[in-house]
Each structure stands twice: as structure tokens, then as C-alpha cells.
Design a binder for these strands. Structure first.
Ligand SMILES: Nc1nc2c(ncn2[C@H]2C[C@H](O)[C@@H](COP(=O)(O)OP(=O)(O)OP(=O)(O)O)O2)c(=O)[nH]1
Ligand SMILES: [Mg+2]
Ligand SMILES: [Mg+2]
Length: 357
DNA sequence: GCCGTTTTCGGCCCGACTGTTTTCAGTCG
């Protein structure tokens, strides 16, 4: 049985998308996204909730709360209908194109009347983006390639597929000169069931040869971006791989950053701010002076934030921060706990006892 | 739009890469 929370999450995310297209204030759509996450992660089914109960949900205030209430009562939200009247569904689809966001989607709609991915592709092929402010030849080609990617996207892959690719690529990069450490991060390290892309982290004093090696691997179909510390490629199978290279001293902070999740990162960065600190992928710093506090290991960074080391599988901002702060993290079963698997044989194979016995 | 034992107003995570930008916005991780 799907919960009402799922439908509410979907309308709040749609509201956030439409606001990001229409509004200049980036914090408003983010507030709707955050509320959508909170509703999705709320333990109870909110079907039939009254306004007072709805307002118990974190990140849901008066404005969003009333919209949720209206949706639960009537199945629609009048304010959402008003936004829908201003932005065709196809324009919202356009922001799914990798590299095209809400701002430029709005320019295309407003200036050229483009209101679907199909129309956009035709406009690019007919050269109609030329002359539009902020849309040069490269941008048009990038959007065209983005549409191809969107269309050909096989979506997320099973963790086993990503794990195999990770092993292959890590093996290749490990031998590059200057590589001191290598690990996979992102959703693969968190052991999510499906993986959107592969995230690899390398520690090296000399990033340039690592980036060169990475972007010229035989598995590379196309280089999406290539910089001094970060590059992205696309494999022939259409899977994206992101590589981040940091100095060995920053390994722990970088591993925390790249392991995520995004929501977990934001929560622990907020904790840092409240302590007069700043957390990024290079380390934990004093906010005022900018002086480094710690960076080398995950344990040290978490400890200075007042937290125990949190297992990657829990880093989803689904209560692990609160649990960690209270010292109530669950003891997870790890490989070291597994002494063997309890099993027996029956006379159906090579045993003596029957199955019933 | 949400939220707060410093605060009910003024912040909101923080930084890399790209393109066309004459100095930075947009998009993404
Ligand atoms: N601080 C911060 N970190 C981010 C943000 N977006 C992504 N990250 C970090 C945490 C993510 O786990 C990590 C890798 O990003 P991805 O987009 O690949 O996400 P992830 O691997 O978690 O999920 P995926 O299966 O790829 O969809 O980068 C962000 O907006 N802020
Ligand atoms: Mg990923
Ligand atoms: Mg990624």
C-alpha cells in the first residue's frame, strides 16, 4: 500500500521545480524540497492528518502545512494549479536534461516559446538558439548531447553492476604514478540498492597525471568535464563516473564529503557552523581564522563535530545524526560478526535426518 | 518558506567546472 506521504512528496517536489523556474529566490524551492524529504521520511502515514498533526513534521510550517492539508482533503492544491498554469509540463521535463537547469529552461520558454524536450531538440537542430543571450554554439551542442543522454539513460543500475565497474576502474587507477589511496564513495559506499553514478576518490600530491589517466581509460566513451581536482566521464554503457582527487592530508574530510549522502553532508556542515567551524571536502576549519582543525581521517572529523564515526550505510539523514549525538547508534552486523552460516543437511541430499525432523 | 536556548529577523552547506561572462551565473557534486 503506497502511503499518502508519497503523493505529498511528489506534489511538493513539483512545486519546488516550478518555483525554481519561476522564482529568483533559491531558498524557497529548497524549503519545499526539504519539506518533501521530511514528509517522505516521516514514520507515520499522514493520510487523514489534521493541520496540527501536519505541523509536527519538521521543515513543514504554516504555508506548506496548509498546502499539504488541502491536498489530503481535496487531492489538489490551488497554489500548485496556479504555477502549473504558468509553466507547461514539458518545461519541467526540460530541466531533467543534464546540464540544463531551471534558469535557462525558463529563458528558452520565455524567449522562444519552447515547451518540450522535442521542441528543444528541433530548435537546436534548426539553429534557433543562436543569438539568444547565454546560449553559444557549445551550449547548444551540450544541450543536444544532454537530450541524447536523457533519452538513452538506462536509469540507475544495481549495486552489483556498479561494484564490478568500481573494482575494474580502481584497479586501473591504483597503478597510476602518485596515487597513494583510492576508494569508491557515494551511494556505492553507502551500499544503496541502486546506484546513479560511480564516485571515485583518489589521494595524490599530483592530480594532473591522475586526471589524464582517468579521462583516457579504455572504458571512457566521453569526457563530460575535466578539471584540476574533479573530472567526470561517461562509459559506453552510459554510466557516469565522477573522480575527485585530493591531497593525502585531506583524505578523511574528502571521503566524508564524497560518501554523502547530500542530506547527511548538509546536516553535519550545519553542526560545524553551530560550533563556529566550517566543514568542506578539504577539512574542518575554524570559521573565523580559517585555520585547519582536522582532515586526515573520518573518525577525527566526526569526533570534532561531537559525533562518533557513523557507518556509511546509515549516512542518509534518516535519524542517524540525532542517534549519534545521543550515543544511540545501532550496532550494525559486520562481516567480522559473521562466524559462519548456520545450516544443516537432510536426507534429500547428503544428510540422514528428514526435512520434517 | 522554515526556523531559533545566542536570534522571531536574517540566515539558509560549500565548492568545482563550463561557457561567453567583461566579472560571474548556471549547473552540478
Ligand atoms: N555538501 C554537498 N555534498 C554533495 C552535494 N551533492 C552531492 N554531494 C556529495 C554527497 C554525495 O553522496 C556525493 C556524490 O554525489 P552523487 O550525486 O553521485 O550522489 P550519490 O552517489 O549519493 O547518489 P547516486 O546514486 O549517484 O544518485 O557528493 C551537495 O549539494 N552538497
Ligand atoms: Mg553517485
Ligand atoms: Mg556523482
Amino acid at each position: 500500500m503506497p502511503r499518502a506521504n508519497d503523493a505529498v512528496e511528489a506534489v511538493l517536489l513539483e512545486y519546488a521545480d516550478l518555483l525554481s523556474i519561476l522564482s529568483d529566490d533559491p531558498f524557497k524551492p529548497r524549503a519545499y524540497e526539504k519539506a518533501a524529504r521530511a514528509v517522505a521520511g516521516y514514520p507515520a502515514d499522514i493520510a487523514g492528518f489534521d493541520l496540527k498533526q501536519i505541523l509536527q513534521i519538521p521543515s513543514v510550517g504554516r504555508s506548506i502545512g496548509e498546502k499539504i492539508h488541502e491536498f489530503l482533503q481535496t487531492g489538489t492544491i490551488s497554489a500548485l494549479e496556479e504555477l502549473r498554469a504558468q509553466i507547461p509540463p514539458g518545461v519541467r521535463e526540460m530541466i531533467r536534461i543534464p546540464g540544463l537547469g531551471p534558469k535557462r529552461a525558463m529563458v528558452l520558454y520565455r524567449e522562444l516559446g519552447i515547451s518540450s524536450v522535442d521542441e528543444l531538440l528541433r530548435a537546436i537542430e534548426e539553429g534557433r538558439l543562436a543569438g539568444l543571450r547565454g546560449f553559444g554554439a557549445k551550449t547548444a551542442e551540450n544541450i543536444r548531447a544532454g537530450i541524447e543522454r536523457l533519452r538513452g539513460a538506462g536509469g540507475r543500475v544495481l549495486i552489483s553492476v556498479a561494484a564490478d565497474l568500481a573494482e575494474l576502474l580502481e584497479g586501473r587507477l591504483r597503478d597510476v604514478s602518485g596515487v597513494e589511496r583510492i576508494a569508491h564513495a557515494g551511494s556505492l559506499r553507502r551500499m544503496c540498492e541502486t546506484i546513479g553514478d560511480l564516485d571515485l576518490l583518489v589521494a595524490s600530491r599530483d592530480p594532473t597525471p591522475v586526471m589524464e589517466a582517468f579521462t583516457s581509460l579504455p572504458e571512457v566513451e566521453r569526457v563530460l568535464a575535466k578539471g584540476d581536482t574533479k573530472s567526470s566521464i561517461l562509459t559506453a554503457q552510459g554510466l557516469q563516473v565522477d573522480l575527485r582527487v585530493v591531497q593525502p592530508e585531506a583524505w578523511g574530510a574528502a571521503l566524508i564529503y564524497f560518501t554523502g549522502s547530500k542530506a547527511h553532508n548538509i546536516r553535519i556542515r550545519e553542526l560545524a557552523v553551530r560550533k563556529g567551524l566550517k566543514l568542506n571536502e578539504y577539512g574542518l576549519f575554524r570559521a573565523r581564522s580559517g585555520r585547519l582543525v582536522v582532515a586526515a581521517t573520518e573518525e577525527e572529523v566526526y569526533e570534532r563535530l561531537g559525533l562518533p564515526w557513523i557507518p556509511p550505510t546509515l549516512r542518509e539523514d534518516r535519524g542517524e545524526i540525532e542517534a549519534a549525538l545521543e550515543g544511540r547508534l545501532p550496532e550494525l552486523v559486520t562481516e567480522r560478526d559473521i562466524r559462519g552460516d548456520l545450516h544443516t543437511h537432510t536426507n534429500l541430499t547428503d544428510g540422514l535426518a528428514t526435512l520434517a525432523q
